[in-house]
């Protein structure tokens, strides 16, 4: 991808389409039992990760929780490698060993895919620590859900980041629910962003259905961090259209609530903005969507014909030197 200033909005719209089509296809393949374990879809939240990566350089660090397919794709991991991971294949982004919740891509600075709620927030602080230690001007973007902010690990991590003035953006993807628990029932604060205040970390609220707002706000924060390292907290308000995971019917929320958010769809919004400004025709949009669908369909074929990890390599990835103790 190109550096941030020139990164094209049409390109980012394509990314959002790719994420959506990927997740739809993953859902279908899960139902066909090609994918096992837990599988959490990102549909509805696309503008958050797209806006965030559009605001940073490719060598900045990103890390997230288990709803991670989109973050891997946004970081340039191919749909092939992502789908193959879901299929548990050798060609997957974690060699078929991680699965849906544990996507990694070292080369593209995507540091996971972490399935224990909030356990990766201290890791993110470690990434940021290393940046400062080496006197680099990178930043770390740490994504997590609204459910993560009540874990001890989260609080300890925020304090450490503030204390050591580390270059990190904490991005809370507030989709109003942690599984079946609404934020109102999980958190004593009126608004999540106020968590930051307790650690003297500046906080912002951003509309996560609006790609441009996410990108611009994070770009502004990141440029200030590059000048002088410090943590910042962003509460991004978004919504997941699907259940928590493939096995959740989401009966704890109303159809009307879901419909309200779908009308505010992040892809439709960016498309409308670009069309209104004369930068995208309907034909062009259809073309982008067609391409996204084709890429994803090809990824299923790729995953299907990819080899399984070999049984005799079972012990190769337990210790770094590849030997059995």
């Amino acid at each position: 991808m190109q550096p941030v200033e020139q990164r094209d909005e049409v390109e980012m719209l394509s990314l959002m389409l790719l994420i959506r089509r990927f997740e739809e296809r993953a859902s279908q393949q899960y139902q066909a039992q090609k994918i096992g374990g837990f599988c959490h879809l990102y549909i509805g939240q696309e503008a958050v990760v797209a806006g965030a990566v559009a605001a940073v350089r490719d060598d900045d660090y990103i890390i997230t929780a288990y709803r991670d397919h989109a973050h891997a794709l946004a970081r340039g991991t191919s749909a092939d490698a992502c789908m193959a991971e879901l299929f548990g294949k050798e060609t997957g982004c974690s060699r078929g060993l991680g699965g849906s919740m544990h996507f990694f891509n070292r080369q593209n600075h995507m540091y996971g895919g972490h399935a224990i709620v909030a356990a990766h927030v201290p890791l993110a602080v470690g990434l940021a620590f290393a940046i400062k230690y080496r006197d680099e001007d990178r930043v770390t973007l740490c994504f997590f859900g609204d459910g993560a902010i009540n874990q001890g690990a989260f609080h300890e991590a925020l304090n450490l980041a503030a204390l050591f003035k580390l270059p990190i953006v904490f991005i809370c993807e507030n989709n109003l629910f942690a599984m079946g628990t609404s934020v109102k029932r999980s958190t004593s604060l009126k608004q999540i962003v106020d968590r930051a205040e307790g650690y003297d970390i500046p906080g912002e609220i951003v509309d996560g259905m609006n790609f441009r707002e996410v990108r611009d706000k994070i770009a502004e924060i990141v440029s200030s961090i590059r000048k002088e390292p410090h943590p910042t907290f962003v509460e991004v308000r978004t919504y997941r259209y699907r259940g928590h995971s493939m096995s959740d019917p989401a009966s704890y929320r109303t159809k009307q609530e879901l419909e309200k958010y779908r009308l505010d769809d992040p892809i439709t919004r960016l498309r409308a903005q670009l069309t209104r400004e004369g930068n995208l025709t309907n034909e062009q949009f259809d073309q982008l969507d067609k391409k996204a669908k084709e890429t994803v369909l090809a990824s299923v074929k790729f995953a299907e014909k990819s080899p399984q990890p070999q049984l005799d390599k079972l012990y190769d990835y337990t210790y770094a030197n590849g030997t059995k103790p």
Binding site: G88, K89, S94, S100, H102, P309, L314
Partner: peptide
């Protein structure tokens, strides 16, 4: 179990 962190892949998981 085998003495390894649990792999996601179904065949490997069975082997563990």
């Amino acid at each position: 179990q085998e003495d390894v962190p649990m792999p996601y892949n179904e065949r490997l998981e069975k082997a563990v």
